[in-house]
Design a protein around this nucleic acid. Structure first.
Lengths: 165, 165
DNA sequence: TTGATTATTGTTATAATATAACATAACATG
DNA sequence: CATGTTATGTTATATTATAACAATAATCAA
């Protein structure tokens, strides 16, 4: 399996595909992807780096949208409810969800060098969480799984200093 | 394995043992468990419910300690550096660490009914995280693993309504 | 279409969480 | 005891998030 966020890829395609996906998904669900909601989703998808609420707000302001905090927090809440994005609790920032059709909680790899986030949906992790919870008679509702470290690309770069090139 | 936080236990013993443990550990490490640091640790250990920084601050204020935010955040930082407590990122609150001798990151079960937190150190979870990271060539530095749900005790209570008693 | 209903957005204010920056005090050690 | 280091005091402010209520827009039944 290849980690998309950490690898070169056609990111314009990421964005447009996420948006058109979101549009049809909202239509099917009978919920409204209003202009501000769609714009927040586009902004979140501008990169695979999680983005903060107030950074989104600044962008909205430049573009002539209303820009009081509730505007962006409401949009984020809607998008989160629709599984179109995830909040990364350890950095108070938001990333687009790759897989909004099936309700799930992601597992995230966060690179501390390039700051990109890769969402996983690891069956290993899901199973391990379930086993551990079961051992304690604990019933899982949801979880926060955020793994911070260094991605392959940044590891490679650190191992090839310029002096060697 | 029994989840201490979720089970009846001698909690006074929890506190005193955590404090005396912290004292010897700090002595061994040549770092200072000053009065405000020790008091913050005691307050964190008052229960197995994670406690917020400003709630700690309010307690310190009542007790005559200095009570500007940096006071408590500095103490929390020290205690965290010494592995004496953990921050739960999903709730912005702090819990005492059961096992400060061996540097580790805990895995947490958070009960949404009784709000208690149980720290685990599950080899299943550790292994699953490592496997997933390895698959992506990702090198782990640290992680946030917080599982929210209902603990066994609260499940039992919800299954025994008063009408049945 | 109209009016009732609900969903969405606008607006103001404030809550909750956390840190910067610099001054002072306490401690450790040669 | 002088000096460097660690810890604390103090003021101010940054960052993240929500409450509360007003206004507007979409929806839909009659």
């Amino acid at each position: 399996m290849q980690a998309t966020a950490f690898s070169p890829h056609d990111h314009t395609h990421c964005i447009s595909s996420a948006i058109s996906h979101a549009q049809s998904l909202c239509a099917n669900r009978g919920v409204r992807l209003t202009p501000v909601r769609q714009r927040v989703l586009e902004l979140v998808w501008q990169s695979h780096q999680p983005i903060g609420a107030y950074e989104l707000l600044a962008s909205l302001a430049k573009e002539g949208f209303n820009s009081a905090p509730p505007t962006v927090y409401r949009a984020l809440e809607f998008l989160s409810d629709q599984d179109l994005l995830h909040k990364l609790e350890s950095v108070n920032a938001y990333v687009g969800c790759c897989n909004p059709d099936t309700p799930h909680q992601g597992h995230f790899l966060l690179c501390q060098i390039c700051h990109q986030a890769q969402e996983l949906d690891s069956q290993y992790i899901t199973l391990a969480l379930k086993l551990s919870a079961d051992q304690h008679g604990f019933e899982i509702q949801h979880h926060t799984i955020e793994i911070v470290g260094t991605c392959q690309g940044c590891l490679d770069k650190s191992k090839t200093p310029e002096s060697v090139l």
